[in-house]
Amino acid sequence: MKSRILSVDIFRGATIILMILVNTPGTWSNVYAPFLHAKWHGYTPTDLVFPFFLFIVGTSIVFAYQNKKANASVYKKITVRSLKLIGLGLFLGAFTINFPFIKDFASIRFPGVLQRIGVVFFFAAILFLNLNWKKLIWVAVVLLIGYWLLLVFVPIEGMASTLERAPNNLANYVDVQVFGTHNYKPDYDPEGLLSTIPAIVSSLLGIFTGLILTSKQEKKTTILFGLGGSLLLLGHLLDFVFPINKALWTSSFVLVTAGWANIVLALIYYLTDVRNIRFGSIFRYAGANAIVVYFASSFITKLFYLIKVDGETSIHGWLFNKIYVHRFISMELSSLLYGLSVVSFYCLLAYVLYKRKIFIKV
Rank of each mutant, 00 (worst) to 15 (best):
V201F: 00
F208A: 08
W138D: 00
T209H: 06
G158N: 12
R109I: 08
L151N: 11
L170W: 04
L90S: 05
I108G: 06
L205P: 01
R165F: 15
G192V: 06
N132H: 08
L205G: 06
P155N: 11
D175A: 00
I207P: 01
F91C: 13
E191L: 04
M159G: 02
F179S: 12
S202P: 00
L143I: 15
F99C: 00
A199W: 01
G180D: 07
G146N: 11
G180H: 05
I156D: 07
I102C: 09
I197D: 11
R116C: 05
A160F: 08
G146Y: 02
I212S: 08
L151V: 08
F101E: 10
V113T: 11
V120E: 10
D175K: 07
V201S: 04
L144E: 15
A124G: 06
L92M: 12
R109N: 04
M159S: 09
L127C: 00
G206I: 08
L136Y: 00
I102L: 15
V178C: 01
L205C: 10
I197M: 11
F208T: 08
F122Y: 13
P111M: 01
D187S: 06
I197W: 07
L205W: 02
A171F: 02
L114G: 10
Y173N: 06
T96Q: 14
V141Q: 05
L114K: 09
P198D: 09
L211I: 12
F101V: 05
L193E: 11
K185M: 14
N168W: 07
R116Y: 01
Q115I: 10
L90E: 02
Y147W: 04
L92K: 07
R116P: 02
G206M: 11
G206R: 14
T162C: 05
A199N: 03
